[in-house]
């Protein structure tokens, strides 16, 4: 009799039955943590693809940019597209340049400043898209274990109450409740660990990308400034 009971108790320690045995709060915690894990991995996959693509685009653009091709031509091909990264910065700067020259800019310093501003704004917007959703990774990474722990504490509390009710301290009575409660912490850790690692990695990547964009912006700004000087000199001479 007793052996059979013990065997039955032991077989009911599978993951599914553990989940089904858990109380409502613990279940909600577990479901929430599984959702957090899904979200984490969605962000990880998304960011991985985004960053890989961004890196490729950066490389391609830099190759085209430094290939000696006419910037006007490049601007014309890129202007119609939806741009991101370096191309977006280039297009923003070129647009400002064009506008200023079409209306006849007078001060080279003002033009330079406007172009820089336009590029800064674009950099800020681009790096914002790169860093988007990374804070939620950080949140999951830091709060996940606590949420899991909360589920565990609640689960252990209820299972202790149940043990007190059953008036038996047999391990077969005590163990399933505690195992079930610990499952919540396990899921919390499963969600949190990849989140923390991914957050650190992608923050680093985003930092690299934005510094690369800044570097490009500085270089391009230098080129444009030279151009401004060259273009404004004849006008001033003509006047």
């Amino acid at each position: 009799m007793e052996h059979a009971d013990l065997a039955a108790a032991a077989s009911s320690v599978s993951l599914w039955s553990l989940f089904m045995q858990a109380g409502l709060i613990v279940k909600l915690v577990m479901i929430g943590l599984i959702g957090a894990s899904v979200w984490t991995w969605a962000i990880v996959i998304d960011k991985y693809m985004t960053f890989a693509k961004a890196k490729r685009q950066f490389d391609q653009f830099e190759q085209v940019f430094w290939s000696g091709q006419s910037l006007e031509e490049l601007y014309r091909t890129l202007a119609e597209r939806q741009n991101s990264g370096l191309a977006a910065i280039f297009v923003a700067a070129m647009r400002e340049w064009k506008k200023s020259f079409e209306r006849g800019a007078r001060s080279p310093i003002g033009l330079q400043m406007r172009i820089d501003r336009a590029m800064d704004v674009t950099i800020a917007r681009e790096s914002e898209t790169y860093e988007a959703r990374l804070p939620s990774l950080a949140t999951i990474g830091s709060a996940g274990p606590f949420i899991g722990l909360f589920g565990t504490v609640v689960g252990i509390m209820t299972s202790f109450q149940a043990i007190a009710g059953s008036k038996s301290t047999n391990l077969a009575v005590v163990a399933p409740g505690i195992a079930e409660a610990l499952l919540a912490t396990a899921i919390g850790l499963v969600a949190a660990i990849p989140a923390v690692m991914a957050y650190n990695k992608f923050m680093g990547d985003a930092g690299k990308l934005s510094s690369r964009m800044e570097g490009f912006a500085d270089e391009f700004s230098a080129i444009l400034s030279r151009q401004i000087d060259e273009k404004l000199q004849p006008r001033q001479a003509a006047q």
Partner: peptide
């Protein structure tokens, strides 16, 4: 983002179902 969310969901379902099936009951 949708594709990656879908991928993540599919991945989790796969992992969870595998865990539920193969990690059913630890040998007592």
């Amino acid at each position: 983002m949708k594709t990656s969310l879908g991928t993540s969901l599919v991945m989790h379902t796969l992992v969870l179902s595998w865990a539920l099936l193969s990690l059913s009951a630890p040998a007592s």
